[in-house]
Simulated scan of single mutants.
Amino acid sequence: MYGSAGGLRELRPAVLAARGFAVLSLAFFGYEDLVPDLTHQLDTAYFQEAVDFVLHHKKVIKNGVGVMGFSKAGDIVLSLGADIPEVKAVISLNGCVSNIFGSMRFKDGSVIEGLYGDNSRILITPEGAGDGTHLVNNPLDYPKTIIPIEKIKCKVLWFTSLDDKNFRGTEMVQIIKQLLRERNPEALEKYWEFMEGPNAGHVIEPPYLPYTSASYHRLVNGVMIWGGSAVDHSIAEVKLWKRIQEVLRQELIPAE
């Protein structure tokens, strides 16, 4: 799943499928009959249906599923790891520990509120593009928005671009570690892996695609910069792509 631009994107799923994985590319807003924007509440039951659909396919190993999300979807996959037992691997790419924008309803009826930001904190570069580094509010100031990550009982690969101009990634890692030390320190050591991309920007894709330093973002109706440098960003994508495949194979393919 991708981020706050909405719709359906099949690039990363297609490349994974070419390497032997059964992959479902899933839209969650802004597509056909789904909610039009992220101000609406999402529900883990919708994602449970997708998990069930994949696991009932006759050519899919029934050992569980992995979920991977970029940007806004990075928080969704954390919620799925905490609420759907069939999820056996969570990969969050430049995501957030809070539920961004609209709320998320869990299967037990509890609701995680949405974390918003302030567009006035977007810095305008000399070229006229926006820098959203400080756009989103601090999760610790809004505890009801924080996903119960202590409930996740599977492998979590958390990737942070160190020059991300969309989320303050290093602060997010600090918050995650602080929360887990308070709530479930064993889980921090047992399940979580933190990976960094030095001088990489926000928009992480499979390797060897053109580096994207800035692009139009329809959520803010303007051009946003994403950070990073072409060389370092590309190196990070190559290393991350290798690790993603390793994690999925280790966690989803049963030992012989």
Rank of each mutant, 00 (worst) to 15 (best):
A82M: 01
D83E: 11
D83T: 03
I84K: 00
I84E: 04
P85D: 11
P85A: 08
P85H: 13
P85G: 01
P85R: 13
P85V: 08
P85W: 11
E86R: 14
E86N: 11
E86D: 15
E86Y: 10
E86W: 12
V87A: 04
V87N: 02
K88N: 11
K88M: 11
K88G: 09
A89V: 13
A89R: 02
A89Q: 04
A89E: 02
V90K: 03
V90L: 05
I91V: 15
L93M: 09
L93P: 02
L93F: 00
N94W: 02
N94P: 00
N94T: 11
N94Y: 03
N94R: 00
G95T: 00
G95A: 03
G95S: 05
G95H: 02
C96K: 05
C96Q: 08
C96L: 13
C96F: 11
V97M: 08
V97L: 13
V97I: 15
S98I: 04
S98V: 05
S98T: 07
S98M: 06
F101I: 10
G102V: 10
G102M: 08
S103T: 14
S103W: 03
S103I: 04
S103G: 15
M104N: 12
R105K: 15
R105T: 14
R105W: 02
R105E: 14
F106V: 03
F106L: 15
F106K: 12
F106A: 07
F106S: 05
K107P: 04
K107N: 14
K107E: 13
K107Q: 14
D108S: 07
D108R: 09
D108L: 10
D108H: 08
G109I: 00
G109W: 03
G109F: 00
S110K: 15
S110V: 05
S110Y: 12
V111Y: 10
V111D: 09
V111M: 07
V111G: 07
V111L: 07
V111C: 07
I112C: 14
I112W: 02
I112A: 02
E113P: 08
E113F: 01
E113W: 00
E113Q: 15
E113A: 15
G114N: 10
L115A: 01
L115D: 03
L115K: 05
L115G: 03
L115W: 13
Y116T: 13
Y116G: 14
Y116V: 06
Y116A: 06
G117Y: 04
G117H: 01
G117D: 03
G117W: 01
G117F: 04
D118R: 08
D118K: 07
N119Y: 09
N119W: 10
N119F: 12
N119R: 14
S120G: 09
S120Y: 06
S120N: 14
R121T: 12
R121E: 11
R121I: 09
R121D: 05
R121C: 06
I122P: 00
I122M: 14
L123H: 14
I124R: 12
T125M: 13
T125P: 02
T125L: 12
T125G: 03
T125A: 06
T125I: 10
T125N: 08
T125Y: 11
P126C: 02
P126T: 06
P126N: 06
P126E: 09
P126D: 08
